[in-house]
Design a protein around this nucleic acid. Sequence first.
RNA 1: GCUCGAAUGGUGGAAUCGGUAGACACGAAGGACUUAAAAUCCUUUGGCUAUUGCAGCUGUGCGGGUUCGAGUCCCGCUUCGAGUACCA
Length: 940
Amino acid sequence: MDYAFREIEAKWQQWWKEKDIYRVEADTDRPKCYVLDMFPYPSGAGLHVGHPLGYIASDIYARYKRLNGFNVLHPMGYDAYGLPAEQYAIQTGQHPAVTTQNNINRYRSQMDKLGFCFDWSREIRTSSPDYYRWTQWVFIRMFHSYYDLNQNKACSIVSLAEHFAAKGTDSLHAVCGQPHAFSAGEWKAFPEKERQTILMEYRLAYLADTAVNWCPGLGTVLANDEVINGLSERGGYPVEQKIMRQWCLRVSAYANRLLEGLDSIDWTDSLKETQRNWIGRSEGAEVDFCIDGVNQPLTVFTTRPDTLYGVTFMVLAPESEWVNRVTSAKNRPAVDAYLDATRKRTERERIAERRVTGVFSGAYARHPLTGKAIPVWISDYVLVGYGTGAIMAVPAHDSRDYAFAQHFSLPILPLIEGCDVSTQSFDAKEGILINSPKEGEEGFVLNGLSVKEAIARTKDYIEAHGLGHIKTNYRLRDAIFSRQRYWGEPFPVYYDADGLPQTLPEECLPLELPEVDKFLPTADGDPPLGHATQWAWDTVQQKVTDTARIDRRTVFPLELNTMPGFAGSSAYFLRYQDPKNDQALVSSQTNSYWRNVDLYLGGTEHATGHLIYSRFWNKFLFDIGVACEDEPFRRLINQGMIQGRSNFVYRINGANRFVSYNLKDNYEVTPLHVDVNIVSNDILDIDAFRKWNPEYRDAEFILEEGNRYVCGWAVEKMSKSMYNVVNPDLIVERYGADTLRLYEMFLGPLEQSKPWDTNGIDGVHRFLRKLVALYEPVADTAPDPKALKAIHKLIKKVTFDIEHFSFNTSVSAFMICVNELTSLRPLTRDILRPLSIVLAPFAPHLAEDLWHRLYPEETGSICDARWPDFNEMLLQENTDTYAISFNGKVRFTLSLSANLTAAEVEAAVIAHPLTCQRLEGNVSPRKIIVILHKIVNIVL
RNA sequence: GCUCGAAUGGUGGAAUCGGUAGACACGAAGGACUUAAAAUCCUUUGGCUAUUGCAGCUGUGCGGGUUCGAGUCCCGCUUCGAGUACCA
């Protein structure tokens, strides 16, 4: 019987579509399982062979869960807003919507060929108004919320205003940009504009002047996770720091919940660790230093309060507002010159040079314990965005302070017994303290304590004496949410006569993205939306009820920026649950059924971007009662990247002659990339090579043994210029989708990165052909016990493997099983039925075909069959069980299956110095049998 | 620098709880069928020694340790990969 994969795959894909086999609805009678892939950005290059890796794995899992009686939600959609389509539009004038639609069509047709069980009726696109309406809606809700630390959740900004009116800032415990303190009376006396300014410090979506990563090459700002080594992630343009008024999300308010939530979810340790580092919780204290001639104390953050006696100078970040406050008239020219010089250096230069620079401000602070004068310096090694933008420098115990002190000849005072700070600082948090007052002396005593004790005691001391307070800091910054781009979600925001931002009424959403004729900034330097003035006025006209508040003089009354790429991907997993709902993002009834994602599959590259933002977003939705689960992704698996495997031919220098890999050392050659699609198992298809490039039409070849041209190879990134991009369509055409699916799984562990390499795909294809051959003829007798055992072994193995995402070993198990069964043909239905079912997640087309061959009268799909149980008894050997003990301690029990009789083995083992005692029952690992053999062998 | 992960034949990889290391597949070598090729099937395939001896020794990056027993656990290195980077 032939394996006609082309006909089989076309036939069943059509049939699944006609019968709507993969449509799912919420069904409270059945347990749910939500299996989600990270939806793709549809790029112009189409899918290469690496993209489907995760989709195949999740598809196997989804199908497996369905066969086990779960109601499986397994949707797919597109992250359709993004920079590449807009860059393309700027270059070619083609509208990003058109580009995106074309790319989506291509993606869809490629995915359709692979036989995925997506419920396409739930498809979503972040660029569709039905969808981004809810992105805008969440933004509005964030704008009208603040984070209350007493309740530890987001609350309505209205209740905050009420609190201010009733009690001022008294008893308020909320996350805030700039701390305020005022009474209820003062609040009531504030003008409206000032009240709004204060409220803005609390809103979860807020407008602020912030230092941003400005990318001139892209003409937009970027989030921290979109900048890599000072270059933009997309395009690789330089990025500089700039102060701009931007929309931000107060992600930092959730820092602690984002950190603690990690303990409750099933992600890999490395990914959790990456997020922990990104959140960067550090416990320490804020200490106040008084500065001569300034009323307000200068507060610094430190994780080492125990080193307070070692402070010999202080440092301000150049951008700190304290710089102006403390700089003396005498030092001002030098300080200004320094500020100027730092401003000109890009972040990239700062990272690259890493040289010590700084300037003395002329001011002195008072040491809070000793009262000594401490010089205040300014240097760019202190970051304005972390802590308070100022530090107390302890050169003896911090390498950066040390380098600074060395450079400017500032004193270095060691505080740890026996440490040597003559050439470098002693940064370790260990040792016994010295150089503070001793027990019995006047002053705060630290001498003789360990670092750990000293930290705790100092924290208590500064808290008790009003010198500062205990503080936990996070590295996690608020997310900058404005992009000066066209192809993104418009903000549902207009500006009133006072220039204050107001949100559009929720019922007016979506605010649709207008058409523009140019995708570049306006002549005034405004973002591209600035071209759509008509749209802006129409929108205000139609959607703003209180039109009196609009300032008629403004040129453009709406927010000009659009939202960043992560906006649309931050809640899409909720929308899939209820994609057509026009009343809510997701109805609470539907959400209480599907809840959160049981299995989320995607790449690690989203560890500090999407996976932080969407957890934040979901926690906010949880707080406001939209989502019923605090964490969106219960379990997460990162599939590895598929790298490219390039092939090389070796051209003899100065000739159109190519020499085979193993002979190339005899010639002067230049290696040239050759299209991997005309190379098979590293053997070059010479005819195809001649056609590939007209230059090689008359090329000559020096072949090696067997008249073959062998190519060299190397692992490189998969890219067009390396000629190593493999399109899944080609593989499907040559071998079929089922072979591709199995082969991608067979390639190695799912989570590991590996090069794409078609060597070996023949073996997988061969296996499927052998498998097909098992189905004809079908025997009508009782099943062979050996065959039964083989199939139950397979069921057990595959069940275990799918639960543990070890798909590569499953494929091996299939091969072993088929090899065993081949010699036992013809097989009965009792064997072929479970074989078809366990095959179904891996090779759905073939399994469906074989299923209908076995049961021609069957009208249902194999997708709704029942996953077979395995019979443990069938797998047992005819055994006796022993416990082996040494020195009276039982080390292991074992089943024994041997050519020897049990009595012979027992006698032998008992004769050995190790003792053996007979047990009842027969539970034990099978492998240990062999060890007993070994013992027996030793004894005999 | 810090954090995390990895290292097993010619290749991809297996060994799931500390129990026969190298499953399965590719590649290679030899053979059968065939006029021939393709396809298919069979045998061999970590290394070394022995192969008219059935076997022996050695072996999971390196050096130690724990254990009756270590690819697996512990300590110390080497190399590679990923993330992060003046985070006080």
